[in-house]
């Protein structure tokens, strides 16, 4: 079971980079009008007065994607390492506590970027009169303190494990 989870996480990370890069290139091509792609897309969008706002929205997406991709990479790689350690019965270690803290920081980064994206979406919706879908997700904000607490629990558990291993 653990090996299946580890493989799934690796595949998910690969997909994160692949589709993230694909989306970035596509959006960059539209915003930068590479090979007339931007012109082709924007000719179907009316009225023309909204084009700049939509370009700004797409540009913001391009800018926000790399930090999210890096954060997701951090989460998935550290989660894979955690699962690997859990599989051999060594989950309660200081290294895993540090991994959970890293996951917490990465989750916080994603939540902050999501807020920024929300602000851009609301601003673009106002400017264009079209609804650019976004809603506040509390899951990330709840997960962050939970992960920090869990990291602390792991650190305490590692200390207890060390004590237990040193007991004769």
């Amino acid at each position: 079971m653990f090996s299946a989870i580890t493989i799934s996480l690796r595949i998910a990370n690969w997909l994160n980079w692949f589709f993230g890069a694909l989306l970035m290139v596509t959006l960059s091509a539209i915003v930068g009008d590479w090979a007339g792609l931007g012109t082709m897309v924007f000719t179907h969008i009316e009225p023309a007065s909204t084009h700049n706002a939509i370009r700004g929205y797409l540009f913001a997406m391009v800018v926000m994607m790399p930090p999210v991709m890096v954060a997701v990479h951090w989460i998935l790689t550290r989660l894979a390492a955690l699962v690997r350690d859990a599989a051999v019965g060594h989950a309660l270690t200081d290294a895993n506590a540090a991994r959970l803290r890293a996951i917490a920081w990465a989750t916080l980064a994603i939540a902050i970027v999501d807020l920024c994206f929300g602000w851009v979406s609301v601003a673009t919706s106002k400017a264009t009169g079209e609804y650019f879908g976004w809603s506040l997700s509390l899951t990330g904000w709840i997960a962050v303190p939970l992960l920090f607490v869990l990291a602390h629990v792991f650190r305490e558990g590692a200390a207890m494990r060390a004590d237990l291993e040193g007991t004769v």
Partner: peptide, 22 residues
């Protein structure tokens, strides 16, 4: 009934704790 390795840990002062049973 204790492994030589554990008893050696105790002897060399590397143990963190000792059980009453030990």
């Amino acid at each position: 009934g204790i492994t030589l390795a554990n008893l050696s840990i105790l002897k060399t002062g590397k143990a963190r704790a000792i059980r009453f049973s030990t």
